[in-house]
Simulated scan of single mutants.
Amino acid sequence: MNSSVKFTRWAEETDQRATSGRRHVHLGQVRTEVVAQFAQIHGWSILGAVVVGFALGAAGSLLTRRFVPLGRVAARSWWLGALITAVVLGLVAWRVRPGGELVVDGFVAVLSVPLTIIDWCEHRLPRALVWPQLGGALVGFSILCVARDDAGPGVRAVTAFVAVAGLFLLLALVTAGGVGAGDIGAAGVVGLVTGWIGWPPVAGALSVASLLALVLVAVPAVRQRTAEGSVLVPFGPCLYAGALAMVAAAG
Rank of each mutant, 00 (worst) to 15 (best):
P201I: 01
P200L: 02
A213R: 07
W196S: 03
A203G: 13
G195K: 01
A221N: 11
A221V: 12
V222F: 06
L206E: 07
V222A: 03
A213K: 06
L214M: 14
L192T: 02
A221L: 15
P201R: 01
T194Y: 01
I197H: 07
A218W: 14
V215Q: 10
I197E: 09
A209W: 06
L212N: 10
V222L: 04
L214C: 12
V208W: 06
G191M: 02
G198W: 02
A205E: 05
A203V: 15
W196Y: 09
V202S: 02
L206G: 07
V217D: 15
A218D: 13
W199F: 12
P220H: 05
L211M: 14
G191F: 00
L216D: 05
P201E: 03
P220W: 08
A218S: 14
L212F: 12
L216S: 04
G195W: 02
G198D: 03
L214A: 15
V215R: 11
L211G: 13
V217T: 15
I197F: 08
T194L: 05
W199T: 11
A221F: 09
A205Q: 07
V217F: 11
V202C: 10
V190F: 08
A209E: 01
P220S: 06
V215P: 09
S207K: 14
A218R: 15
W199N: 11
A203R: 10
L214Y: 10
G204P: 06
A203N: 11
P220Q: 08
L212I: 12
